[in-house]
Write a protein that binds this DNA or RNA. Structure first.
Lengths: 215, 215, 215, 215
DNA sequence: AATGAATGAGCCTTCATTCAT
DNA sequence: GATGAATGAAGGCTCATTCAT
């Protein structure tokens, strides 16, 4: 909600509820305990199939306390979703910004995605499942995040497209061409249909990505 | 959604409930009315968020009648899922089998996927959402279907890999490389984030697919 | 909802749910069991303080069954309210219409009110408490009932006012002057602050009513 | 609602919580802020439908603080009820005591009621709604107040009854006959069914009251 | 005195499924 | 085969009240 976007680990949107002073610490701890428990449940069974009682049980928190910190079950899912998306995005963008050529840039997107997903399997599964029903506020926040991300990535690539080092194709199709294969593989891995972690195959998919968009 | 399954290679799970004789026809009609209604609901709101009452209302069928023809709400979802998957698979395989070169074969997979998905948006959304909780019986049936499909496709491709016309990479990675981009694009289209139908961009993705696996 | 207004004992509004044929009877029985139980609870504790469980317990009906026949707890209260009001109104009006002089008419309103209230203490308490939150549909129905009642009563009285046998005062004030005392006494009786039943004092209040509006 | 209780003849129930010394003033201010906020809420939605959070929000007081000053939500309602009743009663009694004839006395009761109710609409609505569940202590206090009031009023009237200037009827029926019409009209005004304020029609109802009990 | 986090019982309602007719 | 009434276990959420700070 504020300006800082990258590397942030704190939940977005919820920041309004943060309090300064002595109890802020234990408050944040409880919030995180709830988010952690919810992630585990959501990843395992989906948001709808997870009951609030499942979360309170796992987080060891009372119903009332949970609702003191979150608006609703779906509010937890939204906070988690935005937190995860922010993490994934900022990881990719941060790495991209340290690259100095079209090829390393394109490959870095895939490499970072593969690594993050392999290291955060639960969160990846949760984000991939896409069963969060977004409220208007959350939708706005996501749009803001996506906008920033897409704009930053496109600005980075645009110069190489302009130089003729990358193909000139519809804007809509870069992401599918670059990320589609690793994402599809990841989906199979998450569902148990593929054995090796995405990280183990990252070089192959990174090469394919570059191959798909280079001139 | 109403086009009859073509080239179905195996009876559906639910076929055990089919009855021979004079009433079979009206029975089948009612079954299909339920399946059609369920697809609309599932595609619009997801399986969990659809109530049996939603389906009976839309299908104009009584509760008792519905349960006379299906085991459970999830049973309907399974039947629908298997029906859709079979349709999609057999379409792809049928087209592939009519191809006479590695390049046309690989491209045909993408082309057929793009066309089917664009022509069966509701079913595509339902299959993509992946919110069907599979019973053991259904899981088995799906495995059988997948196995046949994968085996058939691989047999087709294997000869070209052997001839050195296609890259030799881990078996797990062919599908992601070939279908990943079009699937990723389709997901964006289904969610409203991309405007043009997959069919409109099929050539681009077909070329990319061949490019990704050719030697 | 239909034309018949007087002496009707059937719940209004709910009539849309009535079914002809063999099961209609047991359906109506269950509906009435729920209404009776609800009346007892509402009269004793108020609508808000009565839980749906209180009603199901007393009516010996399952939760689901209750909700199969009524929209909500408040829907029960509305049905009951309209039923009671209809009974009260039609009793008063029916008796009034059999009177042949201003004096007997005015007195009959009070007498009938006193008798009905004494004979239907629970319903009277429920109606008097006024804690039913009316939906738009119910509000409309009540308006319709009130309109019919007020119009009919005023038409009856108007001729005597015109003849100079009754005072000519603001239309708003006839009901308070005629019914106010007996209603106030009834409220005290219902709350336990007065011992004798309204019926026991009806003559006194009937005389006072006539005295208050005669010329 | 904010006019201080005049001629209060006994301390309120809640007075036990009053503290002497330097903070008494700010304490009383906070108490009153809570009572004012509660009255607004109770009048608008009823006691049951008002949550403690509604009150703390409107009064700008913390939960803990509220519970430091009141026993419970219902305790607030009781305090408010007794405060309002005391105000209404003492107004009526005070005015009655300044009258020097049966006629002016009876009329003054109605006139004062009409004026007070019109000037204190929120409190009148709250008292009229009668949704305060009284604790034993509060019930006792109310009985005491009522007793004093009734006794004082009866003593005043008794002499005129004895002199034959007022009718001799059951003790229970004086109040309904005198106050019933104006109360019934007030109820209609509070519910929006009557337009003119009770104060606007006070003379009519005062005359009727005297007419109802004079010899 | 003041604060607001924490508690957990209880509320209304939904819903998949069964079963008598 | 068809119907829809009946069931009761959950589910998400609210709320009065307590208590540590």
């Amino acid at each position: 909600m504020s300006a800082k976007t990258r590397e942030s680990t704190k939940p977005m949107l919820a920041s309004i509820k943060e309090h300064p002073g002595k109890r802020a610490d234990s408050t944040a701890r409880l919030r995180q305990r709830v988010l952690d428990a919810a992630l585990t449940c959501f990843a395992a069974a989906g948001v709808e199939a997870t009951s609030v009682a499942d979360i309170t049980r796992l987080a060891n928190v009372s119903t009332g306390s949970l609702y003191h910190h979150f608006d609703s079950k779906n509010g937890i899912a939204e906070a988690l979703y935005l937190q995860g998306l922010d993490q994934l995005n900022s990881g990719v963008l941060g790495r991209l910004n340290r690259c100095r050529s079209a090829r390393t840039g394109v490959r870095s997107v895939v490499l970072q995605y593969a690594e993050w997903v392999s290291a955060n399997r639960e969160m990846a599964g949760f984000l991939y499942a896409g069963d969060v029903v977004m409220s208007d506020a959350a939708r706005l926040e996501r749009k803001r995040m996506y906008g920033r991300q897409i704009r930053a990535v496109f600005e980075w690539f645009a110069r190489y497209v302009a130089r003729g080092e990358m193909r000139h194709i519809p804007a809509d199709t870069y992401v599918p061409l670059i990320s589609g294969p690793i994402q599809e593989y990841t989906a199979r891995w998450l569902s148990g249909d593929a054995q090796r972690s995405p990280a183990a195959l990252k070089a192959l998919f990174a090469d394919a990505a570059w191959n798909a968009v280079k001139t």
